[in-house]
Structure formats: C-alpha cells, structure tokens
C-alpha cells in the first residue's frame, strides 16, 4: 500500500489524512484509491466512529486535481477515471454514518474545496486559500457543484462557481462555504478540538439518524448525478482550450 491517504483512530474519532504533502495533496488516481481504501476500512468497522475528521498532511488541505493526470498526453481516459473516483469518494464521505468534519489546514482548491463542502462541518483559518478556479482554467466544476449548492444554496453557488478565482478562509466563512474560521493557522486545532469534543460528547445514534435524514432531504443520496457530472467535467477538460490552459499552468 502506498499510503497516500492514512487513517488513525482515537476512541470515537477517526481521522483520514490526505498524504501527498510534497504535491499539496493534489488529487491523483493513486491518492484517491488509497482514500477509497480508508473508506473501505471505515465502512467495515463494527464499532464505527461517531466523528470522522478529514484533513491534509503538510501545509495544504488539497490543491485540486493533479495537473499530471489531467493534461492528456497518453491514455485519454485517465481524467475521467480520476473524476469518477473523486465523485464516488465524495458520495461515500457523505453517506458515511458519522459526522464528517473537514479540518482545512491550508489551500483547498477546486476538487479539494469540493472535499470540504461535502463534509457536514468544515473548519479553516483566516489565511487559508479556498476556491473554485475551474472556470479560469477552461474547466467545469461539475463534480463539486451539487455539494456546493447543498451547502450554500443555488444563488451564492452561481456567484462562487462562475466567478472563479481564490478567496481567503475569512471570505469563505462569510459565504458559508466553511462553518468556522479560526483567526490563524496556529489556532485552527483549538477550534477543531472544541467542535469534535462537543460532537463526541453526544449520542452517536442521534447524530447518525439526524445526518441520514438531512441526506434524504437534500438529495445527497443521488449518486447518478455525480457520475454524470464527472462525465461532463471530463468532456470539458478534453477540449483544446482547457488543455492549452492546463499546459500553460504547468510551465
């Protein structure tokens, strides 16, 4: 196992860490495969955690899709494989019967920002950079769009996804993309611990039942729309314009 995503357990709290710090935890097929293995392990646990924290190793949370895998130079099906894997991972995180908390320790960009919006609760700090710059790169943020709409509503999602660019953690908090915003990177864990202790002090059955109902009410159980989104995103990504912009970004 490559261990590009790792899992630790401490009583009723588990932590899934994206573990490609040298690449700012960019989404590659290998890292996503390891994250799926973590989800396999979590789903197989008899005594499941009541809280699952998702975070990134190093200074970033997740920098979005790995450029090496979305610039088409060999097998043209690679980006679709990556996008489908991401779509399925977000679905599994949403369905997992524990409260999910994104500990957004640093940059959360594109698909990486999508990973935070799929979590029930997300916590970042004022200086982190978040956002959905897909349109700037000629891409379509299709896989993350359903999660962002469920998080902040269709009106604000339109503004955020069609404007592109990056925003600070503080601005992300104003927009409702994150639940809590610590003053600085140094004080992030204080806020995270306060939230997770509060959550683990309660009744896990009550939390699970509440989450399951919320998933039913907001259409989170619709996996088909995510896979359709992955196909749409892959189509846009394969256009000459998008490929040229991605190549320019690599240089």
């Amino acid at each position: 196992m490559l261990e590009l995503a790792t899992l630790t357990h401490e009583q009723s709290l588990s932590t899934l860490t994206l573990n490609r710090p040298d690449a700012h935890n960019a989404l590659s097929r290998d890292m996503l495969r390891d994250a799926h293995l973590c989800m396999d392990e979590l789903e197989a646990m008899d005594d499941k955690p009541s809280v699952l924290v998702i975070t990134g190793a190093g200074r970033s949370f997740c920098a979005g899709m790995d450029l090496k895998e979305v610039i088409i130079e060999g097998d043209p099906s690679i980006p679709l494989q990556l996008l489908e894997s991401l779509a399925r991972l977000t679905y599994r995180i949403r369905q997992f019967p524990a409260v999910t908390v994104a500990r957004v320790n640093g940059a959360a960009i594109g698909g990486g920002c999508g990973m935070t919006t799929v979590c029930d609760i997300s916590i970042t700090h004022a200086d982190a950079k978040l956002g959905f710059p897909e349109v700037d790169l000629g891409l379509c943020p299709a896989v993350v769009a359903p999660w962002l709409v469920r998080k902040i509503g269709p009106g604000k999602s339109r503004q955020v996804l069609l404007t592109g660019g990056l925003i600070s953690g503080a601005r992300a908090h104003e927009l409702g993309i994150v639940t809590e915003c610590a003053d600085s990177r140094e004080s992030l864990d204080e806020v995270v611990t306060k939230v997770t202790s509060s959550l683990t002090s309660g009744g896990p059955d009550a939390l699970r039942a509440t989450k399951a109902l919320l998933n039913t009410l907001d259409g989170s159980s619709d996996e088909a729309i995510l896979l359709e989104a992955a196909r749409l995103s892959a189509q846009v990504l394969a256009t000459e314009d998008a490929q040229n912009r991605l190549k320019a970004r690599r240089k």
Partner: peptide, 29 residues
Amino acid sequence: TKIGVSPAISAPYMTQSVTQGIARERLIL
C-alpha cells in the same frame, strides 16, 4: 444530540428558512 435526541423534526422547517448547509451545521453541532 447530547441527550440522545435527534433534532430531525426541525429539519424540514429549517431547510425552508435557511440554506440546507446552515441547517445541517446547526442541527448537527
């Protein structure tokens, strides 16, 4: 949830008054 009760009963009303995201956060926290 601290006393094992689910606030689910509020969810259908709350998702009408605020976004689903805010309802999720406040009912779970």
